[in-house]
């Protein structure tokens, strides 16, 4: 059953990534060049809507709070993000979109995927050397969210989680709507 769900949701995810243009490196690179922000608007709207509905769903017991999986914060999160950003801009792919792109017939995505296997393999092999370094120590309390919930600690713990998530979500949706289609000519 678990595998059936994996196939359904994985296929849905790949389908949507392809249809919004996220599996197209030109679309990603032009977003990062601030020339074509449609995909940025798509992403912001997606996060905003899912954020509000996720916390609303938890509040009315339609979604189990056990399904939340807040990842820990440490300096490596932002440093890793910065390294990822360079590769993302050069290749125009990220891990998920490269796999959707391979399915859609892009050969360059296959080379990105192979490079990804090398990058992940090198990290796995060298992890023992810096797993105890200061870069890996929890920051701001580690696995912490902004909106309060019954599973993880929260920074804004004295306000109802649905209210905080709704404010954040509506803010993201507003930015998605206000953002122009292009910031550079």
């Amino acid at each position: 059953m678990e595998i059936v769900l994996a196939i359904i949701f994985g296929t849905l995810f790949g389908f949507v990534l392809q249809r919004v243009g996220a599996a197209d490196p030109d679309k990603i690179i032009n977003m990062l060049r601030l020339k074509d922000l449609e995909l940025m608007k798509t992403i912001l709207l997606a996060i905003g809507v899912s954020c509000v509905l996720l916390f609303a769903g938890i509040a009315v017991d339609v979604i189990s709070v056990d399904h939340l999986s807040v990842k820990p914060m440490y300096a490596g999160v932002t440093i890793g993000g910065m390294i990822l950003g360079v590769g993302w801009a050069i290749a125009g792919f990220c891990p998920g979109t490269s796999i959707a792109a391979i399915g859609s017939g892009r050969k360059d995505a296959l080379f990105f995927f192979l490079g990804g296997l090398v990058g992940a393999g090198v990290y796995m092999a060298m992890f023992a050397n810096f797993k105890d370094s200061s870069m890996m120590q929890p920051l701001f309390g580690g696995a912490v969210s902004l909106a309060a919930n019954a599973k993880f600690a929260s920074i804004i713990s004295d306000v109802n989680g649905v209210v905080v998530a709704s404010v954040i979500g509506l803010l993201l949706i507003t930015v998605a709507a206000m953002l122009p289609m292009s910031l550079r000519k």
């Binding site: 490596g76 890793g80 290749a91 990290y123």
Partner: peptide, 26 residues
């Protein structure tokens, strides 16, 4: 293909240090 490959190396090395990528983290 070379640029896509190099991009892949950086993206996945960075994603593993961060503990997630554009899907999981962002």
């Amino acid at each position: 293909y070379i640029l896509a490959f190099l991009g892949g190396v950086l993206v996945l090395w960075g994603a593993r240090l961060a503990g997630g990528c554009t899907s999981g983290h962002m």
